[in-house]
Amino acid sequence: MIVFILCFILFLVGLFGLLTSRNIIKIIIGLSFMEFSVYLFLVLIGYIEGGQAPIVVEGIDIQMIVDPLPQAMVLTAIVIGLATKAMLLSTAIRIYKKFRSFDIRKIRSLKG
């Protein structure tokens, strides 16, 4: 149970960074912490004490395999996370070229 709560705390740290940072890069870092905590939470749910990796070989006990469904979902989510992060970073680098800063207050002050 304490593992789930620590996972939730990691999510809250990411939320804090997302909402209070003034630097675009730190906002992206906070978003990635939230992603990581959700991946870990999903995999933690499917774990069985003393379980085996979900690969069928000779002589494996079929009841002691950890749940493969959350792992398959998280596998796609990791790659999607990388793609969205790359898109956010390319937006950040365009903003840096236009305003010469990663600080969001300056961007807000220059808005039309």
Binding site: S32, Y39, V43, Q71, L82
Partner: peptide, 18 residues
């Protein structure tokens, strides 16, 4: 530790590229 070697391989490469 959670017996998810597929995810570990993907995450270590993706983290490096990120």
């Amino acid at each position: 530790l959670l017996r998810a070697p597929d995810l570990a391989i993907v995450q270590i490469v993706v983290e490096t590229i990120t």
